[in-house]
Design a protein around this nucleic acid. Structure first.
Length: 579
DNA sequence: TCTGCCTGCCC
DNA sequence: ATTCTGC
DNA sequence: GCAGAATGGGCAGGCAGA
């Protein structure tokens, strides 16, 4: 298949909003491919050249791609940037620039483009940046304009077709069966092996029976089960009737594998997105080696934890353990434990099809209660009353935890699935507990993708520093805004546009908005937490860092009842932070 | 050798 | 991570 | 309710250029 054909199909998909229709287009496209092409196309549509558990990235994002476009089409970088701001999509910019160069462009095979992209991804070390830029530029010179659009988007990982893994899985079912009845089966195979290209190729080569060889193997990560959110204890009980309740810890999701190879115990750790974490947490690896049980796969949350005091360490510190160097040193400063909550495999047996209650029992037998080597089983309570859930929630929240997880005691472990078998209730979903601030808009940024048409995709929010008598930034906000609100915000802000940074407004250069405005419009911002910030200027004193909001979102645009004199102050933020 | 920019990956 | 939108 | 696509703060590490 020619890449050009693929690009045309992408173009058609992009114009389609009905998922049924997208599935139809996609499955017909797959039918046109040879098995090897299927494999490659499926990697490409997920913005990769290898399955996601293999760590080969393009290491090329918007800045690098802009450089490549400027080289390819002999433009100043500033002009490319201008076009990007205007069109909100570097793929569209590439297509536009390529179209202006009318000379006859060649067609390339999907396979060729795939190989060229793989080469680009593989460059590393000295001069790798310029090689990537040059290779992409050469590739774009060869391709037709519509192909340029999608090549650029593949590299950026934003194909924007409205097609994700789930839709691809449905399409694969259609390829084999003519309907979506195979979805569950394909989905399970995929989430067990985490290689969509392989699953696609196997299906096309051997049909459904091709999937039978895909089973749980210790050492190979599976996609973790995910949770839905709920807003109250009541909603949880109304969905689950009975639930196993656990504290929600603020760390990194981690899957632990242990197996035996050549008589030696092996251990591997994987992140939520199947990245290898093994070498970063030696204390957890040692713990797993000491544990009885030759082979198992378990699921848990890695979190900074001081055994002596029972104190949990904040996420901002725990995450510093995700590193390549100085591991032992950091391990001394920030010890972690893996708080386990599920067991998917034990001594040769796949446990995923057992009810959760049974998996949990086996887990509790595997890890002794007082096991001290950085491995613990998370506390569980099985309840059926709303007030029991509420009580546990209050307990966990007052202990400074994120909230709770509620799980159906009878559900299987469904890799990669996000449904109401697992429900999270976060501290911040409760209005009375969330941090809310009144801030003033200091400027806004152009939007990308589907927000391009509004000319705004985020805005910068400041609070007031009474000591320095200036506005300082505390968050960028780009979520919680409805489409008509985007329009309203843009209109309002454009009326108070200023063409230079005003005195008494303190913004770090990295956060400088595309459009600055007069500080006048007051907004209510909700957040989960106040954190120290290396970037935002709120409360910043010399070398001391400022403050920022964790997970900021718009609660209310334009509070006409409040004026700029009444917005949240740095002093108040510091009080909230210390609380 | 140091530093800033950029990217990828955690949440 | 949160949130919005079309189906 | 699902699936996808917008958007956030902030950490470490690689590379290029000073």
């Amino acid at each position: 298949m020619k890449f050009y054909q693929l690009a045309q199909i992408f173009s058609k998909l992009e114009k389609t909003s009905s998922r049924l229709e997208m599935t139809d287009i996609l499955h017909k496209m797959i039918k046109l491919c040879t098995p090897l092409e299927v494999e490659k196309v499926l990697y490409l549509v997920t913005g990769r050249v290898v399955p996601k558990y293999v760590s080969l990235e393009f290491n090329m994002a918007e800045k690098m791609v802009m450089k490549s476009l400027s080289l390819c089409f002999s433009l100043e970088e500033s002009d490319v940037k201008k076009l990007y701001k205007e069109k909100g999509d570097l793929g569209i910019v590439a297509e536009y620039l390529s179209l202006k160069e009318s000379s006859g462009k060649k067609d390339m095979l999907v396979n060729e483009v795939f190989e060229r992209l793989k080469i680009i991804a593989q460059y590393r070390g000295k001069e790798s940046q310029s090689k990537k830029i040059e290779d992409l530029s050469n590739l774009l010179k060869t391709l037709k304009s519509i192909s340029c659009k999608y090549v650029v988007r593949i590299i950026l990982g934003t194909l924007r077709l409205g097609i994700g893994e789930k839709t691809i899985i449905d399409s694969l079912s259609w390829v084999v069966k003519g309907d979506k009845s195979l979805r569950k089966k394909i989905e399970r195979a995929y989430y067990l092996c985490s290689d969509l290209g392989y699953v696609g190729r196997k299906l096309v080569e051997d049909g459904v029976k091709g999937l039978d060889t895909i089973v749980l193997i210790p050492g190979r990560p599976i996609s973790p089960e995910l949770s839905q959110r709920e807003k109250s204890a009541e909603a949880i009980i109304s969905r689950l009737k009975r639930a196993i309740i656990q504290p929600k810890l603020d760390g990194l999701r981690c899957q632990l594998h242990k197996w035996v190879e050549k008589g030696k115990p092996m251990v591997a750790l994987f992140s939520r997105n199947l990245e290898v974490l093994t070498h970063m947490f030696p204390e957890v690896v040692k713990g797993a080696e000491m544990l009885e049980g030759d082979s198992f796969i378990l699921d848990g949350e890695l979190v900074g934890y001081r055994e002596e005091t029972g104190e949990f360490i904040p996420f901002q510190q725990t995450i510093q353990r995700r590193r390549k160097y100085d591991i032992e040193k950091k391990a001394g400063e920030i010890p972690v434990s893996l708080f386990c909550f599920d067991l998917m495999y034990l001594n040769g047996e796949d446990l995923t099809l057992l009810p959760y209650r049974e998996r949990l029992n086996k887990l509790e037998r595997l890890i002794p209660q007082n096991f001290e080597l950085s491995l613990k089983v998370v506390e569980s309570n099985e309840v059926s009353e709303t007030k029991e859930v509420q009580k546990l929630f209050d307990t966990y929240v007052s202990a400074g935890l994120e909230g709770l997880m509620a799980k159906s005691p009878t559900s299987q472990y469904q890799p990669g699935v996000r449904n109401y078998d697992w429900i999270k209730l976060r501290r911040s979903y409760e209005v009375r507990l969330a941090d809310t601030i009144d801030g003033v808009i200091l400027g806004y940024y152009k939007g990308r993708g589907k927000l391009t048409k509004f000319g705004i995709g985020a805005f910068l929010v400041g609070i007031y520093n009474e000591e320095k008598d200036e506005f300082q930034t505390i968050a960028k906000v780009g979520t919680g805004v409805k489409e008509d609100e985007w329009e309203e915000i843009k209109t309002n802000l454009d009326k108070i546009k200023v063409d230079h940074l005003l005195p008494r407004v303190n913004i770090a250069k990295e956060l400088m908005p595309d459009v600055l405005v007069y500080p006048q419009i007051v907004v209510v911002i909700r957040a989960d937490e106040i954190t120290r910030s290396p970037l935002h200027t709120a409360g910043k004193e010399g070398d001391e860092s400022g403050f920022a909001l964790r997970f900021p979102r718009l609660e209310k645009f334009n509070r006409p009842d409040k004026t700029v004199d009444e917005i949240t102050t740095v002093k108040e933020i510091i009080e909230m932070y210390q609380h």
